[in-house]
Structure formats: structure tokens, C-alpha cells
């Protein structure tokens, strides 16, 4: 998927997520993934929104997002110049004979075995979303009982030319 990553710094208050989501829903744009958690400074949260490039003309939505009173800063992260991570939890149906194969797969991908049952096993894996996609595909062969991914979070890479490209930033007053 050719995607955009928006990193939106917001005041951490009730209703903010509904406002953000409403702007997308109203225009019938689908959010591919969404991750929200408190940011480094108190009273603020960072929302990481991944949208499909083709489905959403980003400029207008970014401007509309920026109009929200509680939105402080919006950065668009270039996927090529940012680090992206995601966490996956999966419970896979495995017979005792197949268990070894799945554990081996998990080891190759540097995943962790969280729980083992008689006919199932629960694995966690974090990493680049593409890596998670590959892992998920391989697991599918065994029969996935339940799978949950967190949606990606991202930060800009640390080298010089790939700093945050600030789309919009509300500076101090005056």
C-alpha cells in the first residue's frame, strides 16, 4: 500500500479523537491504521494516522485537521525517511507435531512465545509493518485463531535531510 503517515500532536482531552476521526469519516476517507498514546510532554497525545494515498487527497484533510482547536502540530512522515514499528499478537492453531515449526518461524522473525496450549500457541512480534505482513502470511498456513495488530507508530529517521517535514505548526502567539 502506498500510504501517508500523519503524526498529529493534540491536547489530551476527551472528544479529540472523535473530532479527528469525524473529519475523515465525513469525507468517506478510510483510516488504514490509527495509534494514540500520551506524548512526551504532559497534557498532549500523539496520534499516528496511516491513510491510503489514493483514497485521500491529503492537503485538504491536513488543513481541516489543523483547524481543530486541540490540534497543535501535524507532521507528514515520509515512509522512506522514518522508522515505523508495529506490534502483532497472534494465536495460531497448531497440533503438537506442528508446534516446533511455528516456534522456529517465531524464532527466525525474532518473535516471542507468550503462551502455549495443547492445540494453540500465542506469539508476539514487533517490527516493521512489512515484516509483520510476511509473518502473518506464513502463520496463515497453520490457521490463525485470532490476530491483533496495533497499527503503526512512526518517528522520523535521525539523519540530517530526513527531519520532520512540518506540514503545519502553530507557533507561539504573536
Amino acid at each position: 500500500m502506498n500510504h501517508h503517515i500523519l503524526s498529529v500532536l493534540v491536547q489530551n482531552r476527551p472528544g479529540v479523537l472523535a473530532r479527528v476521526a469525524g473529519l475523515f469519516a465525513r469525507r468517506d476517507y478510510n483510516i488504514f491504521s490509527l495509534a494514540v498514546a500520551p506524548a512526551e510532554n504532559e497534557g498532549f497525545s500523539r496520534i499516528t494516522i496511516v491513510v491510503d494515498v489514493d483514497s485521500a487527497p491529503l492537503e485538504q484533510i491536513t488543513k481541516q485537521l489543523f483547524k481543530l482547536i486541540e490540534v497543535v502540530k501535524i507532521s507528514e512522515l515520509d515512509p522512506l525517511r522514518s522508522v515505523e514499528r508495529e506490534l502483532l499478537l497472534a494465536t495460531v492453531r497448531v497440533s503438537p507435531e506442528q508446534r516446533g515449526q511455528v516456534v522456529e518461524l517465531a524464532t527466525i522473525f525474532e518473535g516471542k512465545i507468550l503462551a502455549v496450549g495443547v492445540e494453540a500457541i500465542t506469539i508476539s512480534l514487533d517490527g516493521h509493518p512489512d515484516k509483520l505482513d510476511d509473518f502473518e502470511e506464513l502463520l496463515a498456513g497453520y490457521g490463525i485463531v485470532e490476530l491483533q495488530r496495533t497499527g503503526r507508530v512512526a518517528l522520523p529517521k535521525l539523519d540530517k535531510e530526513s527531519r520532520l517535514r512540518a506540514v503545519a505548526h502553530k507557533g507561539k502567539a504573536g
Binding site: V10, Q11, I69, V72, K170, G171, A173
Partner: peptide
Amino acid sequence: VVDSLPGYR
């Protein structure tokens, strides 16, 4: 009031 609205400038 202004400080309470950091996203409104």
C-alpha cells in the same frame, strides 16, 4: 486563555 489553547493561533 491564550495559553490554555496551545493549538489555536
